[in-house]
């Protein structure tokens, strides 16, 4: 069941990905990108990463691409013309494709080490590792992780804890960066500066 769904969503992703590149109408390309993101989100959710999957939809499909579509419609960009590609562009593209394909093949090949399958998440071992790293053994996440009634992996808790205990500085730097960006946009869009 799981692998059928995986292939289904992977196929959806690839099909929409092709759609993004092949379409000449920019709005159709953007809509294909949304489809592609939905496929990615579905794959994340299948990996028990609910939070990442949903954020993928909310942020990329729900906000970023909406802005793209918005701009495309406002500017009314016409469809692209077919054009000739120079030889060197095709060559470079091929080289990149070969490198990426090779890397994927290598990763896929290393699956043999674990019997062709990734083992399920060992929650007890995860708790042990966390305690070893110096976490309080009684912290909420540890109890949720070993709670048998919890059907799914508590990914929201884990991400939250990681962000706010292990990477607080990074988080704040990103926050400052975003604030600077937002303020900058406001300043630039106010044309008459005193």
């Amino acid at each position: 069941m799981d692998s059928i769904l995986f292939y289904l969503f992977a196929l959806v992703m690839i099909a929409f990905g092709f759609g993004v590149v092949m379409n000449r109408n920019p709005v159709t390309s953007a809509m294909c990108l949304v489809g592609c993101f939905l496929g990615v989100a579905a794959l994340f959710i299948m990996l028990d990463a609910f939070f990442i999957g949903v954020v993928q939809i909310a942020v990329y499909a729900g906000a970023v691409i909406v802005l793209f579509v918005f701009i495309l419609m406002l500017l009314d960009i016409a469809g692209e013309k077919r054009r000739e590609f120079p030889i060197h562009a095709i060559a470079i593209g091929l080289i990149v494709a070969v490198i990426v394909g090779g890397q994927i093949a290598m990763v896929a090949g290393s699956l043999d080490d674990v019997g062709g399958k990734f083992p399920p998440i060992d929650k007890a071992a995860a708790v042990e590792a966390r305690v070893e790293r110096g976490n309080n053994p009684d912290s909420t996440i540890n109890t949720i992780l070993t709670d048998p009634k919890k059907p799914s992996y508590p990914d929201v808790h884990i991400i939250g804890e990681a962000l706010f205990t292990r990477y607080p500085l990074h988080l704040q730097i990103v926050a400052v960066l975003l604030t600077v960006g937002a303020v900058g946009v406001v300043v630039l869009s106010k044309k008459r500066l005193e």
């Binding site: 609910f50 939070f51 949903v54 939809i57 499909a61 729900g62 909406v66 990914d155 929201v156």
Partner: peptide
């Protein structure tokens, strides 16, 4: 486990 988030994500579509 992410009820409200899922609703927001889908509603944004």
């Amino acid at each position: 486990d992410i009820g409200p988030l899922l609703i927001f994500a889908i509603a944004s579509l």
